[in-house]
Design a protein around this nucleic acid. Structure first.
Length: 224
DNA sequence: CTCCTGTAAG
DNA sequence: CTTACCGGAG
């Protein structure tokens, strides 16, 4: 089976097995942006705690969040880890929204997709994965999000090399499934679930994985 | 490559 | 105790 063909069938198999994941779990676009920054190299459970704190403080709105002193913000997001770094990153993003787009995420999101991605990516502390998560899930634009789970899974299935860069990985997926926001949102969410439950960092658990039947040699490529 | 950091699971 | 976590910067 060709790589592109596999990528298409992965999606069908994952969706059939697990159904829609309902991503991104957030009530507002701003909450998506905040969550995307807070979840950098961090378990989602800890991000939830930080977001609960922000909500309890009434700080999950642009003006209130921007008004918070950085140290207080850091204290609120402490459970998400790297809190000093992330407080700065959140403020960097908020600064863009407040100073360039009149404090309006909607206004920022009016940019054409490619310009929007570049604008978000230009923020200190927002790299490609975080930028693409914001563009796909908060702005609802067709950009395929890839992450460490995606690389691991794609490598083990022989779709890309282990040293594949972000764009290569992104093209391998985006170029092989229907260009549709809802589909891409769903696919990334399903890949994350597959990575968590089966395509683990050490010792993948292929038994019971919806993608096991696609393994060429009956087992994942090594070494990861 | 190292640093940033809380939390939970092994 | 160590590893991993929906990474990114220097």
């Amino acid at each position: 089976m060709r790589a592109g063909e596999k990528v298409r069938e992965f999606y069908e198999a994952l969706l059939a097995a697990w159904g829609p994941q309902g991503w991104w779990p957030a009530e507002t676009p701003l909450e998506v942006c905040v969550g995307a920054i807070l979840t950098q190299n961090t378990a989602w459970r800890n991000v939830e705690r930080a977001i609960e704190n922000l909500k309890a403080a009434g700080a999950l709105q642009v003006p209130a969040l921007w008004a918070l002193p950085e140290q207080e913000l850091a204290e609120l997001i402490r459970p998400a880890g790297y809190f000093n770094v992330k407080a700065g990153r959140l403020r960097n993003f908020l600064r863009l929204v407040v100073e360039e787009y009149d404090g309006s995420l909607e206004q920022l999101f009016e940019l054409p997709t490619e310009r929007l991605r570049e604008a978000v990516l230009a923020v200190r502390g927002i790299g490609r994965e975080t930028a693409d998560s914001i563009v796909l899930y908060a702005a609802q634009r067709p950009v395929f999000v890839v992450d460490a789970y995606t690389l691991r899974l794609a490598f083990r299935h022989g779709i890309v090399d282990l040293d594949a860069d972000y764009e290569t990985l992104q093209e391998a997926f985006a170029g092989s499934v229907e260009k549709d926001v809802a589909v891409w949102q769903e696919y990334h969410a399903l890949l994350v679930r597959a990575g968590k439950l089966h395509c683990k960092k050490q010792a993948p658990v292929c038994a019971g994985c919806p993608l096991q039947k696609f393994l060429e040699e009956g087992e994942p490529r090594e070494p990861f």
